[in-house]
Design a protein around this nucleic acid. Structure first.
Length: 582
RNA sequence: UGUCCGAUGGUGUAAUGGUAGCACAAGGCCCUUUGGAGGCUUUUGUCAUGGUUCGAAUCCAUGUCGGACAGCCA
């Protein structure tokens, strides 16, 4: 799968280039930055700051990863000489794929970060990791175990019950060395043996109860092919990879807190280049969505969404396709902060960051999503006027354009009510509204078909009320958008909404599956939308605000030349909708 | 009746022994040729109980509540 990148500022760089500090989202300090600053002060790591972002290439990156990316690359960028590595934690070939390593790189780059020459793979270290394991065996701190997976579970005990030692625990160093070599040589079946660290089966920390550090898996690896039939486990590979790369601060999420003693044990047991400090922070939880790769994969595989880059997905690729900008994501990440408290962030905060950014940069245009025809009975047939319109009131440099106006227009169905609700100050029989950048009109006649559906509104214009005209300053409560029927571009527009109907689909009750809470209205496809003609040449790189409706961008996959398909990134704040709901 | 971690308005965070502040959300007002944006404004908070201190969100103790951990996943 490929997705068009919407930024062009991907810079190539050389080794030891400081990690790019993406501009515009200066993060306030947090407890991790405090630790880094204190370590710099004390000279703990010789003044160096080396972080890493270590994804497993078994899925697409999501907004939660963005938090980690902004943290790790951010810290590197803020410290003189700081570097952030991109390291693929590819120790489980059964689940990993090059599609994911490609998408991960694209997403990190798109977010605005640069690892320079510092791209690594845990699989780069397989040989060294193997040697370290032999070292551990020689030290009497690792042994080959023949227990089956089921047996190992029963020997492990439980959080409150100590485990029992494996009967294979006291094999000699020589026997272990031979067996481990035979494991590597492929002499045993998958799962027949493991290499285990020899620590303490009675430890109150289950991760210290002789954890497996190598398992036999005769599976081809996406980088090493069939060179290996044994693969190191996360706890063993990660700390050593960190050390090999000279990482100073190994930042990970809270669930690894309990693993830290093992991280430290391995590095203390071996002669390694350095001993990085593992620091844990709370992963991002966002309301009205799910964040686990397993669940996102499920949505993709069961075709509940189009793909990993479905605009409803909280993936970086999905947000990008929807029209969210990297700046908005970075600002969001700066705003949510970094702590050890495992909370639930309101998705409204993300939505705010998106609107904030898009409001600054989006070109304003007029588009009618659900058209209703308006005929201006006192406007000359065949006449067209070009109405000047501002492209972006937030940015004078964006200039202006003209929009064609004529006798037959489309307006939004929602902008007319035959029987007006209270506080409705748009169009209704006998009422006047202002047409944005044009005239004040008055509704006189409602025309319906046999079924009683409204097919046409007959209105009259106040000819002096044209923008800049004699009566243009008249106080009119409502202003609505419109598109000239004769000039309109008909297009497909997709309205996206929250993927789930409940704040915590993950957590919605005993035995309930998160998919029960999928929002049936998360995608609404409109095929008869009428757009102002300037949109015919819209490209995915340009963000638009359809006035009074929301922010839109041309879909990078489904748009064709001269025939754009638009995605709604997010709606405008809508105080009328709020009024009605309240 | 294990180990580790955490707890500040509805939500996310700041205050590092010295005036509990910011943002989002919610409400109100002003402004507006986008019911957008913007401006002003209001409501709501230190888990509990003790202790140390001139002074505690912060330090200590106890309790309560919440989270993570029992893959040959990461």
């Amino acid at each position: 799968m490929t997705t068009t990148s919407t930024t062009t500022s991907t810079t190539t760089s050389t080794s030891d280039t400081p990690a790019a500090a993406a501009p515009g989202a200066a993060a306030a300090s947090d407890f991790i930055r405090d630790i880094v600053a204190a370590d710099n002060q004390s000279g703990k790591h010789g003044g160096k700051v080396v972080t890493r972002f270590p994804p497993e290439p078994n899925g697409y990156l999501h907004i939660g990863h963005a938090k980690s990316i902004c943290l790790n690359f951010g810290i590197a960028g803020e410290n003189p000489g700081g570097v952030c590595h991109l390291r693929f934690d590819d120790t489980n070939p059964a689940r990993e794929d090059v599609e994911y390593v490609d998408s991960i790189q694209e997403d990190v780059r798109w977010l605005g970060f640069d690892w320079g020459a510092n791209k690594f793979y845990a699989s780069d270290y397989f040989e060294r990791l193997y040697q370290y394991a032999e070292e551990l065996i020689k030290l009497g701190k690792a042994f080959v175990c023949d227990l089956t997976a089921e047996e190992m579970i029963s020997f492990r005990g439980s959080p409150t019950v100590p485990g029992r030692e494996s009967p294979y625990r006291e094999r000699t160093v020589e026997e272990n060395l031979n067996l481990f070599a035979a494991m590597r040589a492929g002499d045993f079946a998958d799962g027949a043996k493991t290499l285990r660290a020899k620590i303490d089966m009675a430890s109150p920390n289950i991760h210290m109860r002789d954890p497996a550090i190598y398992r036999i898996r005769k599976v081809d690896h996406h980088r090493t092919g069939d060179a290996w039939g044994i693969y190191p486990m996360y706890d063993y590979a990660h700390c050593l990879s960190d050390s090999i790369e000279g990482i100073t601060h190994s930042i990970c999420t809270l669930e690894f807190e309990v693993h830290r003693p093992l991280y430290d044990w391995i590095l203390d047991a071996l002669k390694t280049p350095c001993h990085p400090q593992q620091i844990e922070f709370a992963r991002l939880n966002l309301s009205y969505t799910v964040m686990s790769k397993r669940k996102l994969l499920q949505l993709v595989q069961e075709e509940l969404v189009e793909d990993w880059d479905d605009p409803r997905m909280p993936t970086i690729a999905g947000l990008r396709r929807r029209g969210v900008t990297p700046e908005a994501i970075r600002h969001f990440c700066a705003r949510i902060g970094v702590t050890k408290y495992n909370g639930l962030t309101d998705i409204a905060l993300l939505e705010f960051s998106i609107r904030e950014d898009l409001n600054r940069r989006a070109l304003r245009v007029m588009a009618v999503l659900r058209p209703i025809k308006v005929v201006l009975t006192n406007y000359p047939e065949g006449q067209t006027e070009e109405m000047p319109a501002v492209n972006n009131p937030e940015d004078p440099a964006a200039g202006s354009r003209t929009v064609p106006f004529s006798r037959v227009l489309y307006i939004e169905r929602d902008d007319f009510m035959e029987v007006p609700a209270k506080k409705f100050f748009r169009l209704f029989p006998g009422n006047e509204v202002r047409l944005r950048y044009a005239y004040i009109i008055k509704c006189n006649t409602v025309i319906k078909d046999d079924a009683g559906n409204i097919t046409e509104l007959q209105c009259t214009v106040d000819p002096d009320s044209k923008s800049g005209g004699a009566t243009a300053g008249r106080k009119i409560k409502g202003t609505i958008h419109w598109v000239s029927a004769a000039h309109a571009l008909t297009a497909e527009v997709r309205l996206y909404d929250r993927l789930f109907t409940v704040p915590e689909p993950d957590n919605a009750g005993e035995g309930r599956d998160f998919k029960e809470f999928l929002n049936p209205h998360s995608l609404e496809t409109l095929t008869d939308c009428k757009l102002e003609p300037s949109l015919a040449t819209a490209v995915p790189e340009t963000r638009y605000q359809f006035e009074r409706l929301g922010y839109f961008r041309a879909d990078p996959k489904d748009s064709a030349a001269g025939k754009p398909v638009f995605n709604r990134t997010i709606g405008l704040r809508d105080s009328w909708a709020k009024e009605q709901a309240g």
